[in-house]
Design a protein around this nucleic acid. Sequence first.
DNA 1: TTGTAAGCGTTATCAT
DNA 2: ATGATAACGCTTACAA
Lengths: 344, 344
Amino acid sequence: MYCKYRMKPTINDIARIAGVSKKTVSRVINDSPLLTGETRDKVKAVIEQLGYVPNPQARALALGHNFLIGLVHDNPNAQMILNMQQGILEGLRGTEFAMVVQPVNRSSPSLVEDMREFIVRQRLYGIVILPPISENDAVAKMCVEAGCRYVRMGSAVLDESKHMVASNDRDAVKEAVRYLIQQGHKRIAIVTGPQGFRSATERLAGFEDAMTEAGMKLPRSHRAEGEYTFDSGLVATEQLLDLSPRPTAIFASNDEMAAAVLYAARLRGIAVPDELSIVGFDDTPIASRIWPPLTTVRWPIVAMGRSAAHKLIAGAVEEIDLEDEPTEFLSNLIRRGSVAPPKP
Amino acid sequence: MYCKYRMKPTINDIARIAGVSKKTVSRVINDSPLLTGETRDKVKAVIEQLGYVPNPQARALALGHNFLIGLVHDNPNAQMILNMQQGILEGLRGTEFAMVVQPVNRSSPSLVEDMREFIVRQRLYGIVILPPISENDAVAKMCVEAGCRYVRMGSAVLDESKHMVASNDRDAVKEAVRYLIQQGHKRIAIVTGPQGFRSATERLAGFEDAMTEAGMKLPRSHRAEGEYTFDSGLVATEQLLDLSPRPTAIFASNDEMAAAVLYAARLRGIAVPDELSIVGFDDTPIASRIWPPLTTVRWPIVAMGRSAAHKLIAGAVEEIDLEDEPTEFLSNLIRRGSVAPPKP
DNA sequence: TTGTAAGCGTTATCAT
DNA sequence: ATGATAACGCTTACAA
């Protein structure tokens, strides 16, 4: 047997069989530039032949960090988180990195300490932080202190390029509302997200941009605050549908609340889209499953996840160049059946 | 400074300050029974004081495995995976274990090798396998070979108790269909899941159980095969709604397809629930967001995840007793607006 | 360009 | 009951 106990081969096995020292093998693994092409080829052949894979735990110990990327989130929009996971894993594919997931409670007073604990315990190489936690600068500061790379995901650029993947919610919503205006809507209302969410602010700003551009005003009454949940959307919608004259279109700041707008309209016998047009945000699966299917904003979460992962590991993986990774990502409006011109 | 460079304290710092050897500290950490209470207390005090946490990477190297639990899935449905993650993390809370997630492609010819690679690379302590991959016995065999603990999640008990957390889909569906029959339905159809999914088989069997119990037959025409996707549900439903006389109730083997049944009914102007009752399975968020809200089967995914995690780490964590962990989990029927007695 | 020795933080072995 | 010493697999000085 070429190595003890039929276990996975170690660096020692490779060194012995290739007739070189451990360190030489280590140099091959780490693509050191100081090697003869000949030596390199010889060692690589043995590595290939034995199917040798370096032990990440040993490397972790020697290097002082693990080959783990953390994903920290709260606010489970299930599909968003799963898409993000998919994107990160795509970004990590082919490397020795793995992804560990950690949900946290954003309103816990120990949030920052909980995250530090997570980072330090697992000696994470880097973490991806999802909104709304990503908007917390104290968290970013803690990451630096803890010696952990980080990338924040957000609805606007909040940090240096290497620490950020961002959508542009403001422009995306502006385009969506512009579309409603083009359809002839005059009384357009918004269900906003909760205060303290940057995405809520951005989306509202985009809404106002479009209105201003068209010389229209957003009366305070046409603005109802939700909390990104279905139930809060229901409550906010009631408020808007009580108005007289009623809005002919409602932009809801996420799909969950847009589904609530639709639900509330149905409860009152208001026809969608004939009597009320609805636009959502996220393009979650629910948007295309309900009737009528929802016009909504789709943002490239998977691509953002992939890029976030790349930004984190660019320093460790030769093939990845930080310069190639975008910081801002474009959303686009998905037009479906929930919007129509207002009936006079 | 009590330890070099203000770094996290190591076992050496604890040993030095407590005036004992490394090994003694190690014994305290691992709850060795051979210690004086006095020594133990002294060491524990120092650990407490310095906030010492053992380095998982070093332990991993010494022990030959990592403190990582893997979650392997092939994206059956986003909410289910996220609930499972939540459950596993609840089960891991307070321990030194973390969860790493790995999606795989169930139809890849290299599925088993891909999973082995994942396990060996990260030296996983154990993995949780989600359906339908969990139904593959070759995967379980590979885990044993690779020296990795595993727990399979499934819709029926497929393995020894310590390797299994299972729902009882057959009984759950039986109860659901029994409910339809009680409401007076005579022509009940089913949209099944895809062949090769154990859950599909179980749910169909439960359907047939209820029919048989009531002395009813399931004609071949009342059975349409879907693939657990919205689009396949649409196609299957078309088939069923073309029948004459039309079924008065349809059980869809998951919510995604139940949403499709509702959607297809709406396209044809068939009123739900007055002209058609619908029952789904999963109780995903979509079930309560659509109109009318969906009567469906809810299964305790979070609890199953927690238990799966506990079964994996029971040997490593004193507080957890394998005997306390259930293997079968009960589902229950959530009654909402999509079911009504048939109109004559 | 390559090799040697020491060390990363922990556990296992075998003394005492 | 406790401790010295050698692993675990790899990397980083520092030599050669």
